[in-house]
């Protein structure tokens, strides 16, 4: 799992040396920003179900045709799966905020996603719309502190770019 610490340790191990002062400084930099990340993760975790529902609603409002027969959301089962997937993306963003890197999204969310969506005939635009709504809806200090929100939005943008 890629994070600042594992990157530093991998590099030190490849060179066969003990962690140097540079390595310790890199970890220290990560720790300094950790408070905002952990705050964002905590707030997201506690509101995950609500955020997921709002994002899904926004997506089906914009692309109402998705609920027509033959489209990706033409039955309640399929609609539920859309909400579930959005919940997965937000959960992975929660993990990224914990780790302090894009490792969880890369390994569990993005790798292979394009192929899966193409095979299943799913529109990635719908996911982008839902995540964009979440990004624009979140505001400081109502939801979380400005620095925490900044961290949260950067991972939303990362996901949006990966799906685009």
């Amino acid at each position: 799992m890629k994070s600042v610490v594992t990157t530093v340790v991998t590099a030190a191990d490849a060179a066969g040396r003990f962690p140097s002062q540079n390595d310790l400084e890199a970890v220290q930099g990560n720790i300094q920003r950790a408070a905002a990340r952990l705050e964002a993760a905590e707030k997201l975790a506690s509101g995950l179900d609500n955020v997921t529902r709002e994002a899904g609603d926004a997506c089906f409002n914009k692309y109402a045709y998705l609920k027509q027969p033959g489209e990706a959301g033409d039955s309640q089962v399929k609609i539920d799966k859309c909400y579930r997937d959005l919940g997965h993306y937000l959960r992975l963003i929660n993990y990224c905020l914990i780790v302090g890197g894009t490792g969880p999204l890369d390994e569990w969310g993005i790798a292979g996603a394009r192929e899966v969506y193409r095979t299943l005939g799913l529109p990635t635009n719908a996911y982008i719309e839902a995540l964009t709504y979440t990004r624009d809806r979140a505001c400081a200090p109502r939801d979380m502190s400005p620095q925490a929100l900044n961290e949260f939005k950067s991972y939303l943008d990362y996901t949006i770019n990966a799906l685009s």
Partner: peptide, 14 residues
């Protein structure tokens, strides 16, 4: 923490 939370498909919080 993340890997053990993923096994339960739960977000990390609290």
């Amino acid at each position: 923490t993340v890997v053990s939370a993923d096994a339960k498909t739960a977000p990390v919080g609290g």
